[in-house]
Structure formats: structure tokens, C-alpha cells
Design a protein around this nucleic acid. Structure first.
Lengths: 339, 339
DNA sequence: AAGTTCTCTGCACAAACGTGCAGAATGGTG
DNA sequence: CACCATTCTGCACGTTTGTGCAGAGAACTT
């Protein structure tokens, strides 16, 4: 039986420090088979490797962010010598591993979609859980497609990694008419998903940004038409969380857009116990500031270059993060950003 | 700062799957330094690697033992082609790693001493905890020495690994006179240790056995004199747990010995929430049976060859483990062994 | 039974890794 | 400042590990 062999090989390798050669002799097989068994043990989650940062070793950046916003921050080390794409990939890889430490049986996990989530999904290690549910938090349909294959791919990878049941949400990301959304929200099929969303204990999301240097395809016309893009500009939107738009000060009273959004109301988001945000890419920094100001985040996986920029902004720009006036607000779940 | 570098290297290596070469380039150092940084990260507990056996992959042996005695069993894979010494060493290495998953801050851990504990102590990985206490459960003094260096070495390794404070217990393993023990037990210095022992939430011990093929030095005359050894023989003692003696049926009403023992009363042991026993060496199998019958164990790290033997005994020998008559006793903390 | 497809094995090679060693850097100490 | 002791570095080498490939084997089809 393969699982058993893989387990035994992994025990001998990781718990008893034998070399693969020695394990091969004990298990009467070739060294290469042992190598593959051990890989398999890692791939299937028999072995889990985690890296803890002792408080003593936390970088100043992590500490200051954590203190100011009362959130847990994981900074993903990167260099500026590599491209945005690779930075996203490495951030997603780290995030996937950190995330899997937080998932457990009988959990309901909400998932947004987008390039960040897609990258995370590609790197998810498997973890054996039961009675776990994965639910899509916002629609992915647009003018061209219902987006089922795309969002579905992401969802099903999460489902496969955790042997969870998945709940799709095949509605438009942003409805054309608010009334249509309201009508749909009364449908039983939709209400079932909404109810599932209300049980979410862990919400995983990236941030969308209309101001990204290379605007993501979400903001480039596939999802939003001219009228929408104009509204986004007018209203001073700096980002979105599951298609729910906000400004840099964290406000989201933008009925012209948000009443048509398929995503969860930000008040509902803030009620989710754990809100796990993964963020890479310097040009989306406004979106991050807005999300922090809105108190959307409890756990943040942040690419190092972005973290540095964020810290430097907090010192110089009046429109950016500022030192909290009262040190007693350490544990606050939200904090003011705008000057 | 070294810790910081080690952490960064470990993150890049384990969370982002870069090669050491790539990490070296990013960190502007040589590959060999990176190799050493990562080793250091492992050694200091920045990285933790654990192997989980999914229920599906549990061996029949583990399952049956777990079910019959209501305990958690970890079987350490070994072969019969290697000597007892190496088997003990490998068992201890596995045990040390499993043990460190159970230790945490603000815990009081009781420690016995002996060749098993010594081997575990040599292999303990470090784990950052605070407010942890390690307390010696039984004395190690004998006719020649107070045993402070020996037991102290073990204790201090545990202390160092977990940055815990250690509490020595420099009394004879087995008093010559019961009255002396009683008198000592009224001393404030001793009572402080006894009180510490009462707070123990995790007790780590091996098993002593007078019937071992190569009798451990504990039973070979250094600790017990002729009179004691005769009593051990007479009373049908098969083993001891922290110098407290028991028979194969788990009974320990042996006043001639146990009233003089410095170890904790077995009733007190059974009150400790987690009782972590590490066991290697076929010839001590009687001691294991007695300890199981006495309900001394909640978590057992067991060398595979011993586990196999135990299972075969349970089928053939009337003096050995038998199938529990009522299947409802699954969760019982103790079970009858003798026929 | 022959064919097809898929998985598994061991080999051989290349890539990645650990470590003894000698010299450089660092940090006290007289 | 010079001295020693300790720690850190990179190199070079040997060991350990990963993987493409071709053949063996299993499972399923026709």
C-alpha cells in the first residue's frame, strides 16, 4: 500500500534522520523509489513543514504593522531584482503554506477569485480534513462568460486540496441592474449560497485595484463597462475586496456600484472571524491602505517590497498611514488611515 | 543578526522552494553559509517538521493497541537487522521529535531518568517556550553517588531545549529505610519538589526491567543491593516506572520496596493528564505489559519489533495481553492483562 | 490473447547539499 | 596596540538527492 510505504519512508527520513540510501535498504527497494515515496509523502500532506518567526526575530515592519492595525502580518521575503509575476508566485506559494496551517476540519472557508487566488490555488499543499466547505464569495460572470471554468478551477483546487465540498456562486461579479441582484438574492438557490457565506469562519482574498500599473483584467473592461469605470474613477475607488469597492479611507458608501455587487457587504466581511488577505505588487498599495483602513484584514501575507513601501509612506505622506495617536488602540481591528 | 538571517533563509527555502544557491544570491552570501543558516534554523526550532499518520494509514498494530488500552500509540519503524543500541537511539530520536510537539509554554513536565531518557535528552530539538518547568520525578542517588551529574545532565538538556527552569530531586532512588524517606518528605526542600511534581501535566518516562536480557545498570547492583534484588525477585516485579515497582498484572502493592521509593505513587502517576512512555528493547516486554495493565501510559512511543511481539503475545500466551472481553471498553484508561 | 494505456521501477546522470579546512573577521584582554 | 580565542566565511570535495528515460509490470479493452 502506497500511503503506508510513504509514511514509513517519511518517518525514517524526517524522524530518524536516515539517508534515503539506508531507507532503501531497509525497505528493500531502490533509492530513487524512496525519493519518490518521500516526495509523495510531502505532496499528500503526510509531512508538514512550518516556519515560525519567534517574536524576537520579527522585523520592525511586521511589528509596526501588527501593532498599528492589530493584525497578524507575515512578510514574504522577496527582492526587487525579479519581476512582478515571479513575486506574485512566490508570495502565493508562501501564502498557500501559511494558509494551510489555519484550515481545519469542519470549517467553512470563503474564497474570492482573481489572479492572487488563482496563484494560491495552484500551490496549495494537500491537507487531510473532513466536513470542510469551500464557498465562492462573489460572482465571476461578466459580459463574455459566466466565469464558471475560471472561478470553478480555483474553487475545485481548494476543494481537492482539503477534500472539501465546494459551493459555486454563478452570478455576475457586478450586476448591470441593482434590481436584478435583489431579485436574484430572493432565489432559493442563491439564498443557499448566501447562507453558506454567513457561516464562513475564514475568508481568503486578494485585493483588486483600478490603479495598478498594469491594470488587472478585472478592471480592464472585461468585467466593468465604460459607465462602471467612470463611476470607479469618480467615486475615488482605490480597490475592491470580492467586487465590493472602497476608497482609500476605507469608506464603501458607493451605492452606484456596491448595490450591484455580488460580493459580501463589507460589514458582513468584518464579522468574519478570520480574514486572510494576500497581497503582492507595489502598484496596488492604495488598495491595501484602503483595506487596512476599512478593517477588512485580520491576517495579512505581504510581499516584502510592498511592506517596505507601506512603511515609508506612513512616514512621509499625509494621505497615507500615520502613527496612531493613542497607543492604547493596539488591539483595534480597524484603524484610521487618511489624514 | 543571525536569527533573522536564518529565518529569512528558512522561509525562502521551505516556504518558497528556492534552492540554496538562489537564496545565496538573494542574500549576498555563499551557498555554504545558506546551508548552515538553514541547519541553524532547524536546530533552533525555527523550522518544525512533523509527520502525521492519517487514520487510514495506521497499522493494524497501532490500531489494536490504541483500541484495547485507549492510548495513543506511535510505532517507530525499525528492522531486526540492527542492534538494540541503535534501535534505542532511533526510537529516542523519533520520540524526542514527537514529544516536542506536545510541549508548550507554561507547562510543567515531569522527567524520569535512565538510559531511555538519556537518549531522548541527547536528541531533543529546541523549541521556544516560556514559563515552562522541568521537574525530576525520582531520585538518582545510590550507594556510590548522588547521581546529580547524571540525572542533572538529562534534566538540563530538557531545560535547555525548552528554555525551561529545572528542578532537581537529589535523593536516593530507593531509600534504605522507609522512615528516612518519610522524614525527608517532611523537609521543606523536598516538599517544594513534591509540590512541583503535583503540577506536572506531562510525564516522560521509560520503563525499567529486572528481566532485561542485558539488565540495565539500574538493576545490576549499583542501585539495589542483594536484599532489594531478592525482594524484586520474590514479589514478581516485572518493571518500574520512576523506581516505583509493579507486577505484570499492574499491581504495585509492594510495601517492602515501594514505601522506600523516591518515585511518585502510581496512583499519583495515573492522575497526570498525559503520561508519555518511550519503550524500546524486546527484553523489557514484561515491563511494558505491566505498565499497560497498570494504566500508567496515555501516549506510547514504541519500537516496531516490540509492538509486533506484543501483538503476537496477545494471541498465544495466557499470561500475556488478551482480547478485551467487552468491546465497549474502548476508551478505558487501563485494561486487564494477566489471565 | 493481443493490444493499449497507465503506473511503477531502477539506472544513470545532473543538480543540490553538507562539511573539513584554512584563512578572514570579530571581540575581548593584557 | 598586539595578542589570543572565538566565530564566521568561502572553497573544494564527497555525499546525498531529484529526475528523464526506457523497460517491466499491471489493468483494462477489444
Amino acid at each position: 500500500m502506497k500511503v503506508r510505504d510513504a509514511l514509513r519512508a517519511a518517518q525514517l527520513y524526517y524522524l530518524q534522520d536516515l539517508t534515503m540510501e539506508a531507507i532503501a535498504r531497509e525497505m528493500h527497494t531502490s533509492r530513487s523509489s524512496v525519493s519518490r515515496l518521500i516526495s509523495h509523502a510531502r505532496d499528500t500532506g503526510l509531512v508538514s513543514i512550518s516556519v515560525h518567526s519567534p517574536l524576537a526575530a520579527r522585523s520592525q515592519i511586521e511589528e509596526r504593522l501588527a501593532e498599528r492595525f492589530g493584525i497578524t502580518v507575515h512578510i514574504v521575503p522577496t527582492t526587487s531584482h525579479i519581476g512582478e509575476a515571479e513575486r506574485l508566485d512566490r508570495t502565493a506559494l508562501s501564502a498557500a503554506r501559511i494558509l494551510s496551517e489555519h484550515v481545519d476540519s469542519s470549517m467553512t472557508v470563503g474564497i474570492a477569485w482573481g489572479s492572487t487566488l488563482s496563484a494560491i490555488a495552484r500551490h496549495l499543499p494537500t491537507k487531510r480534513t473532513h466536513d470542510t466547505h469551500v464557498v465562492q464569495m462573489n460572482g465571476a460572470a461578466n459580459g463574455h462568460t459566466f466565469g464558471v471554468p475560471y472561478a470553478g478551477e480555483i474553487l475545485s483546487r481548494f476543494g481537492a486540496a482539503w477534500s472539501a465540498s465546494v459551493h459555486h456562486f454563478p452570478v455576475p461579479a457586478l450586476f448591470d441592474e441593482a434590481a436584478t441582484k435583489e431579485a436574484m438574492w430572493r432565489e432559493r438557490s442563491v439564498r443557499a449560497v448566501l447562507q453558506m457565506q454567513r457561516r464562513v469562519g475564514l475568508f481568503v482574498f486578494g485585493l483588486g485595484s483600478p490603479r495598478a500599473a498594469v491594470p488587472s483584467h478585472v478592471y480592464s473592461g472585461d468585467y466593468f463597462d465604460q459607465r462602471d469605470l467612470a463611476l470607479i474613477e469618480q467615486e475615488g475607488v482605490v480597490g475592491d475586496c470580492a467586487t465590493m469597492f472602497y476608497r482609500i479611507d476605507g469608506s464603501s458608501d458607493i451605492p452606484s456600484l456596491n448595490l450591484r455587487s455580488s460580493g459580501p457587504d463589507l460589514d458582513d466581511v468584518r464579522r468574519i472571524p478570520r480574514r486572510f488577505c494576500v497581497m503582492s505588487g507595489l502598484s496596488k498599495i492604495d488598495a491595501l491602505q484602503g483595506a487596512l483602513a476599512a478593517g477588512l484584514i485580520t491576517d495579512l501575507v505581504l510581499e516584502e517590497t510592498v511592506a517596505r513601501r507601506l512603511m515609508s509612506l506612513s512616514r512621509v505622506s499625509p494621505r497615507a498611514v500615520q502613527t496612531s495617536p493613542k497607543p492604547s488602540s493596539t488591539r483595534a481591528r480597524s484603524a484610521s488611515i487618511a489624514g
